[in-house]
Design a protein around this nucleic acid. Structure first.
Lengths: 307, 307
DNA sequence: GTCACATTTTGTCCAGGACAATGATCATGA
DNA sequence: TCATGATCATTGTCCTGGACAAAATGTGAC
C-alpha cells in the first residue's frame, strides 16, 4: 500500500523557513557555527534540506521554545531530542490532567470535540464557557504541545472547532449601540486568534459593543480605525509566545499614538503582571478580570458622554 | 487634539517586510538597482525606513499585485502612484456595482454588516447564502481592494464578520457519520480562509461530513491526518493570489502522497480551468459545481464502502 | 492571431563579516 | 540564603555585493 512516494527528496531554504519557523539567516548561521543542518546542494549551489534534517529542526525549534539553548541540543540525535521533549519538570504533573476534550483533540475526533464544546456552551452560557471551558482547555493544549503530545494538525483542528462555537455564540449577541464601544485586534506579530475571541465573547456577554478586526492589524491602521470609528476602548490580546518586552514597547507606542480619551486594555500571558510598567494602559489579568475592568470603565466619569 | 505623535520616526527592515509584504532581500535589491527606497541608517548602519517611504512601498506593492512591473512605477511620486491605483481598465465598470454591504465595509459599520449578513443567511439558507451573497461580495471586496478603495482594516473587518456568520451556521449542521468524509484545508502558503469556509458551508448543507483544519497545513501533516482519519476526500482552497503554477505543482505532489482511494478536490480562482493539467484531481469550477462534484462522488462505485 | 525563440527583468539565494540584545555566570552585599 | 549588579558568552539579525533561474516581455515566422 505504501508504493506512492511520500515526500519530495528535499526542501529548499524558503520551505524550511515555513515549516520550522527558523529564518533563512538562522539556518545559514547554524550551519556555519554548529555544523547542523548540513543540507545537500542543487545544481545551482542552493541548499536542499532532506526531510530527516527538517524533522530534527522542528524538534530543535520546539525545545528552544521551551527555553533550551541551541548550542546545548543541536548536537543531539533525533531520538535524544524526542526524549528531551516531554521531559520538562512539570511534565508529569500536567500529563495527569485528563480532560476528555483534550483526548478528542489528540485523536482527531473533530465532530465529538465540536459536540462537547457546544454542549458545554449550552450548559454554562457564553461567559462561563469562555472562562471555565475554553481557557483551561487552551492551557492544556499549550502544555500538551510543549510535551510533544500534539502537533500542528491537532492544534489547527482544535482552533477551528473552538472558533466555530465561539463565533456562532458571539454572533447571537448583537448589542449594537451599547457602551463601551470596544475595538479588538492583535499586533502584527501576533497571529493567535483564540485569546481575542474569548475576550470578545466575555465582553459581548456583558453588553459591550465589540468590533473585532481579527489578528495582525498594522499600528497606523489600528489608530485610524479607532479614532474614525469613535471607539472608547482598544483591546489587544497577547499569547504566551509574544515576547513580553516587545509587548510593552508596542503598547506604549500605541498609547502615544491614541488620544487619551480612548482607553487601551491589554490581556494575555505576555502582559500579565506588567501593569506597573504600562502607565496609561489597563492590563487585564485574566478573563474574569475583564468584567471588573468593564465595570471600572462604566463607573469612571467621562468627558464625552454626549459625543 | 493632535498633539500626540503618530508614528515612530522610522521602521527597521523587518517591520517594513511585515507592513509591505516585500522581503528584506527585495527591499535591498531595489535600493541597489532602482535607487528606491533609500532609507536612513541608525548608529549601527542598519536601515531605517521613514513612514513616507513605507507608504510609497505599500502603493507599489499594490500596483505590482495588479500586474505592473517594478521598474515602470518605482520612479513615480506617491501622488502619481495613487492616481495609477483605481485606474485599471475595468475600474469604471466595477465601481458602478453598488452593493449595500460593500458600503458597510467601506464605512466600518461592523454591526450593520453583521446584521445584513445574518438577514441574508436567514432569507437564503446556508447554501444560497454562500453562493449568492458571500461569493459575489468576496469578489466585490477584491475589486475594491484593487481599486484602492479599501485597506487592510476594512478587509479584516469584513473577513471577521463573514467568519462569524458562516461559522455559526456551519456549527448548526452536525452531520457526523454521513459520507463522504471531507478534510478541508489550504496549503502552507495560502492564508485566506473565506474560500474554505464557503466550501465547508456548501458541503455541510449537502450532508457531507466536513472537518476543517483551517489554513496553512504542512503537507506531511495533511497526509497523516487524511489517512489516519479515514477520509474520503481532501479539499483544498486557493485564492486568486496563489500562483497557478505552484498550485498545480503542490496538488500533483499531494496526489502522489495520498492513496488513490482518497479523492482530492481543488477549488478557487488559481485552479479554475486547470482540470486537464491535474489528472487524478477534481477541480471545482465554482461554488455551484461543488454540489455536482459531491453527486459524482456519491454516484461512483467504491471499494471501501464497508471500511 | 499564435506559436517558438531570444532577451530583459526580477526575486531569491549565497558567502562571510559584524554587532547588539539576550541569557548565563559570578562576585558582592543585605 | 537570597537578591543585585557587572562581566562574559551566546545567538539572531542585519550588512555588502555577487550570481543565477524563473517569469515576463519582445520578436519573428507561420
Amino acid at each position: 500500500m505504501e508504493t506512492h512516494h511520500t515526500f519530495p527528496a528535499a526542501l529548499n531554504i524558503a520551505a524550511v523557513e515555513r515549516d520550522t519557523g527558523l529564518s533563512k539567516d538562522t539556518l545559514r548561521v547554524w550551519e556555519r557555527r554548529y555544523g547542523f543542518p548540513v543540507p545537500e546542494r542543487d545544481a545551482n549551489g542552493d541548499r536542499l534540506y532532506p526531510a530527516s534534517q527538517v524533522e530534527k529542526l522542528r524538534l530543535i525549534r520546539r525545545l528552544i521554545d521551551q527555553g533550551k539553548r541551541p548550542a546545548k541540543i543541536i548536537g543531539a540525535s533525533t531520538e535524544e531530542l524526542l526524549a528531551l521533549i516531554g521531559d520538562t519538570p512539570d511534565s508529569r504533573a500536567a500529563a495527569a490532567t485528563d480532560i476528555p476534550m483534550l483526548q478528542y483533540v489528540r485523536l482527531h475526533r473533530g465532530a465529538e470535540l465540536a459536540a462537547a464544546l457546544r454542549q458545554a456552551l449550552l450548559r454554562q452560557g457564553l461567559q462561563r464557557f469562555a472562562a471555565e471551558t475554553v481557557a483551561p482547555l487552551n492551557e492544556a493544549i499549550g502544555e500538551a504541545w510543549m510535551r510533544g503530545e500534539i502537533d500542528v494538525p491537532e492544534e489547527h483542528l482544535y482552533t477551528e472547532q473552538v472558533q466555530n462555537v465561539l463565533r456562532g455564540a458571539i454572533g447571537t449577541h448583537v448589542g449594537s449601540g451599547t457602551r463601551p464601544r470596544v475595538l479588538l485586534t492583535t499586533f502584527p506579530d501576533e497571529e493567535h486568534v483564540l485569546g481575542l475571541l474569548m475576550a470578545e465573547a466575555t465582553l459581548v456577554a456583558e453588553g459591550a459593543c465589540c468590533l473585532s478586526l481579527g489578528t495582525r492589524t498594522p499600528l497606523p491602521d489600528l489608530r485610524t480605525a479607532a479614532v474614525d470609528g469613535n471607539f472608547d476602548v482598544v483591546g489587544l490580546s497577547f499569547s504566551a509566545a509574544y515576547p513580553a518586552r516587545q509587548a510593552i514597547d508596542d503598547l506604549l507606542q500605541l498609547r502615544a499614538m491614541l488620544p487619551a480619551s480612548i482607553a487601551i486594555w491589554a490581556g494575555g500571558s505576555a502582559v500579565q503582571g506588567k501593569q506597573k510598567r504600562l502607565p496609561g494602559i489597563r492590563v487585564i489579568e485574566g478573563l474574569e478580570d475583564t468584567i471588573a475592568v468593564l465595570g471600572e470603565w462604566r463607573a469612571a466619569p467621562r468627558h464625552d458622554l454626549n459625543a
